[in-house]
């Protein structure tokens, strides 16, 4: 009988916690995508408004700004942004469906695949056009 020391950090009142092994099902990954993209968009949005207003208000700088956006690194960032936006939206529509139209076991995975496909498709369209 060996003794393993485990660094568990268990709170007396709240008990043990889940780890990654409990988070392997697709619906959980949909949640992570939704939450991470939401945080990213919430942080980006105020910046988007301010930069847009500044650039348009000063037309001379707008074209300079648009030139800056043509850099590959910026194009990549923009594509990721579009991906985040469409992923968050598609995932959100899936949730609205589950909550208001009803939960059905048979199309859960289909709905997830659809949301992911739409998100990736739009991001690809954007990346190819840009």
């Amino acid at each position: 009988m060996n003794r393993d020391v485990a660094h568990q950090g268990v709170n007396s009142f709240r008990g043990r916690r889940n780890d990654a092994r409990a988070r392997t099902h697709p619906a959980y990954w949909a949640f992570i995508v939704h939450r991470v993209s939401g945080i990213g968009l919430a942080l980006f949005l105020p910046i988007h408004f301010v930069v847009l207003a500044q650039a348009i208000a000063h037309p001379a700088t707008l074209n300079a700004f648009l030139d800056w956006t043509r850099q590959p690194a910026v194009k990549l960032a923009e594509t990721l942004l579009v991906l985040a936006l469409v992923a968050h939206t598609a995932g959100g529509v899936r949730l609205l469906f589950i909550e208001f139209v009803g939960w059905r076991a048979d199309w859960q995975k289909t709905a997830l695949s659809l949301a992911a496909a739409v998100a990736l498709g739009c991001a690809l369209l954007f990346a190819l056009a840009a």
Binding site: R23, H25, A27, Y28, F31, L95, G102, W103
Partner: peptide, 18 residues
């Protein structure tokens, strides 16, 4: 948040999410 961990693990195959 519709993680559906409950639905995934319920031994009676219930769906608390629903």
């Amino acid at each position: 948040h519709t993680h559906q961990s409950c639905t995934e693990r319920c031994p009676k195959h219930l769906s608390p999410t629903a």
